[in-house]
């Protein structure tokens, strides 16, 4: 089990065979595909183009910087636990970020959303903001979409009996990634605040309850592939307290962060902020639950 087995489509140190270059290119292709699959909904949202030039620069900077450890942790998680080193995780994260920047620039140029006569600041802002979800996509594309081409199938066979332990913090982190991803997709649209304005407080509470029930149901009740099971002796409410409730708080926290980044919370009353967070928390919590199943 050396490292080039672990990392689909990347060049390893040491001896290189001609396949390595090809595998690396295929890895890049998968990354680009992932960036598109995850990024296209956002690339085609006009609010995000506008955000590119009016988003406060320090908030954009914070988002871009926060994305780096997120990608590294994610790269480390989706690689094979035992053989995947931090060094490789950092390399994969960097490549994913790079692919995302290139793909965002390419697609935005095709859409005529960025043109040479625009201010550099505006162009960079537009690309940078799109690169965040696209980079998550690129990373997942490189790992989740691939696998068959190299020796990982055989690797899977070998791994069949082994178990991977996920730390509690890591579990919450996965939920945060899922929440961030889905909330980034919808947060910039006007619909989020419009929905919040249309809702009464009772609607908001009902949506909060529904989000939590869905989260719990997704992970424990509905038998998806990757569903979590409880040992027979553990009552269901244990997982509810230990995972679902913290997961929802994570989803709400991510929602608040994303809304703040996009300037939706400025000068807004606290009660309204809560309602915004609950509305955005709905997709975020679904994303968080899905991340626990998929990742």
């Amino acid at each position: 089990m050396d490292e080039d087995v672990a990392v689909a489509g990347t060049v390893s140190r040491g001896e290189r065979d001609p396949d390595e270059a090809r595998r690396f290119l295929i890895g890049l292709g998968r990354g680009a595909a992932g960036a598109l699959i995850f990024g296209v909904p956002m690339l085609m949202t006009m609010e995000l183009w506008f955000l590119g030039f009016y988003i406060e620069r320090y908030r954009l900077l914070l988002l871009l910087i926060a994305n780096i450890p997120l990608l590294i942790l994610l790269a480390h998680r989706v690689g094979f636990e035992e053989t995947f080193t931090w060094r490789e995780a950092i390399r994969d994260a960097t490549i994913a970020y790079g692919i995302a920047l290139v793909m965002s620039a390419l697609v935005l140029t095709l859409f005529g959303s960025i043109r040479p006569d625009m201010l550099l600041m505006e162009v960079l802002g537009k690309i940078a903001i799109q690169a965040v979800p696209a980079s998550i996509g690129a990373l997942l594309g490189r790992s989740q979409l691939g696998g068959e081409l190299d020796k990982s199938e055989q690797q899977d066979e070998e791994n069949k009996g082994s178990e991977v332990s996920t730390g509690y913090g890591r579990e919450l982190f996965m939920m945060a990634v899922g929440a961030l991803f889905l909330s980034l997709n919808v947060a910039p649209t006007e619909e989020i605040i419009l929905i919040a304005f249309k809702m009464t407080p009772w609607h908001a509470i009902a949506l909060l309850v529904l989000s939590i029930v869905l989260m719990h149901g997704f992970v424990y009740a509905v038998a998806f592939r990757g569903t979590h099971e409880l040992t027979k002796e553990t009552p269901g409410w244990h997982a509810f307290i230990r995972f679902t409730l913290p997961g929802y708080v994570v989803a709400i926290a991510i929602s608040l962060y994303v809304l703040w980044t996009f300037g939706r919370l400025d000068d807004v009353a606290f009660g309204q902020i809560l309602t915004f967070a609950i509305v955005l928390g709905f997709p975020a919590s679904i994303g968080a639950a899905a991340a626990r199943l998929i990742l």
Partner: peptide
Amino acid sequence: TTTSKNRHTETQQPHWIEWMTGAVSAVLI
């Protein structure tokens, strides 16, 4: 959580921090 070929089973003896986080979350919600 223990993952084995896409089957996740929560551990039986969770760390107290998990309960603590759960309790704080419940209070926040």
